[in-house]
Design a protein around this nucleic acid. Sequence first.
DNA 1: CCTGGAGGCCTATAGCGGTC
DNA 2: GACCGCTATAGGCCTCCAGG
Length: 356
Amino acid sequence: MGRPPSNGGPAFRFMANEVMEMEGILQDHHNTMPAREVLVALAEKFSESPERKGKIVVQMKQVWNWFQNRRYAIRAKSSKAPVKLNVTPMAREESAPVRSVPQPVAASIPTPVSTTTVAPSVSTAGRVITEISYTEFEAKSARDGAWYDVGTFLSHRHLDTGDPEVLVRFAGFGPDEDEWVNIRKHVRQRSLPCEASECVAVLPGDLILCFQEGKDQALYFDAHVLDAQRRRHDIRGCRCRFLVRYDHDLSEEIVPLRKVCRRPETDYRLQQLHAANDMATSDHQKTSTDPSTTSIQRITAESVQRQQNAHVTAGPVSHAKISLPAQKMTPEPKTAEISNTVNVGNPTLLPSSTLN
DNA sequence: CCTGGAGGCCTATAGCGGTC
DNA sequence: GACCGCTATAGGCCTCCAGG
């Protein structure tokens, strides 16, 4: 969908005086579409203007399009309820300690990528966990409700309720910040910072870990993706935007990909996308100008969406069930830094279609 | 002052439903 | 089935602003 790649020429734009004239006509028509004759007359008039004469012929369709979109924009503006896009002050305890945030999980600590399945039984958690890489887990702090990297599992115990708890030291923090956390509810496999090419794996409805910047502090909280606006990738990397709702205060915000950490449960989507891109690449070599490559991505995205529905959504992972993916998608150190070179010059990898 | 990042605006077009 | 209107969105470009 959308405008096809330009033919290389400069993009057409109406000039200010033309816009003013069309706005006047639109007002005169009470925001209804003027008659075809009016549009044709306008197009001819614009084409004959000194600025355009002999250079650019304004098509009636272009005038028509302008009216269409302006009418839509006006209507959308007037009917849209004010949407809270900025971060609202979080409802939190006054005494909540202000922590500096360990930078996106992986960025703070080199991540040894474990390919072994980690399945510590609760009863042996204390012993088994000491043998694994702690940076594979994150824990939710009861003090501020935010998620932090687990630096060390120090001890474990059982409550009367039967719920196992572990004493964790958060990565980058000292003993003063140690907390007992419920394994079943507040310990899970670490969320993964998204690279630019991974934005396609973030879909509406997803649970994500989202970087919320408040006045005094900025922390990672659980959030759900309400909508994803796909945008073309360029030298800056991913320009997609995600409307998210934070679970803890229900505030909504539009965030870029760099603030999003996806759950490891979505790894399977990337596997599918990579497989599809491999196919597209080989196809591309056969037919270098095959415009259907974008449809491959659409197909893949749709199949991803289908599988998403079939998948159990990512909730707190029971420690006893944690198992790392047999094959990691990104063996490179996971970092929140967005590669500036990702996808540039390779339009077949761009998220060229909406995923919902 | 220059440069680059990020957000927003604008135009073009695809998709869908309604009407004839 | 053709046509039309509405809506959503891709992609290009502009603007703002922070940092060097």
